[in-house]
Design a protein around this nucleic acid. Structure first.
Lengths: 110, 110
DNA sequence: CGGCATCCACAATGATACTG
DNA sequence: CAGTATCATTGTGGATGCCG
């Protein structure tokens, strides 16, 4: 009768994809490969320092791949790995919820 | 040809359900109404201070309802609101991803 | 039991400037 | 362009005590 809840896996997941910027970064990469600067612009308020360290963490956990191309100046492309793509439904779901939430807020003001 | 990505709604959603503890708290409440102490035990490492402030924030955003029952000592029950329940699929999805992720890590060690 | 208040410590994040 | 270095600010965590 008692609903057994296992919170631990949620905590595990958040260790990888938690934090302030990982979802936005991953969501931005749902749109296909992006350069460092594209990510900065997509996300808007993130600083280069945070973006850099978050990308490093995501790369370390196998969710994102980094490819440096030796042009002048340098070009670097970031992309979701196959494993990272397993998060796409989740990311789109969050985005959809966010859109709906904003709509709800606007309605509540009128 | 260019995939237009709107990251902003993701940021909006994370303002409400982001942070270190909100997903675990909400996920724990997927199992039905819980008392303050039950939440503390479910989540494990959270302190009363953090739990209290996070619950207040969630209540403020209409995701969680609080009901105090005048027993001695006091009983307080927290529950997902109807609006909070719209997050259930998302929460279960994250949990499932976390379980799968742990499995992947274990496999990679063997 | 279910909190809130206070104080302290430290990690995460941010602003700005600078470099290969 | 794609970051790194440095410094300042904020967020989060812990301990303790108090109260309805």
């Amino acid at each position: 009768m008692k609903n057994k809840i296992q919170v631990q896996p949620v905590m595990d997941a958040l260790e990888i994809i938690g934090g302030k910027w990982k979802f936005p970064i991953l969501y931005s990469l749902c749109g296909g490969k992006k350069r460092f600067k594209d990510l900065l612009e997509d996300i808007g308020k993130i600083t280069p320092k945070m973006l850099s360290s978050e990308l490093k963490s995501l790369e370390c956990n196998g969710l994102v791949s980094r490819k440096a191309i030796a042009t002048v100046p340098v070009t670097v492309e970031y992309e979701l790995t196959e494993y990272g793509e397993t998060l796409e439904p989740l990311l789109r779901h969050i985005q959809a919820w966010g859109i709906n939430h904003r709509k709800k807020i606007i309605d509540s003001i009128k």
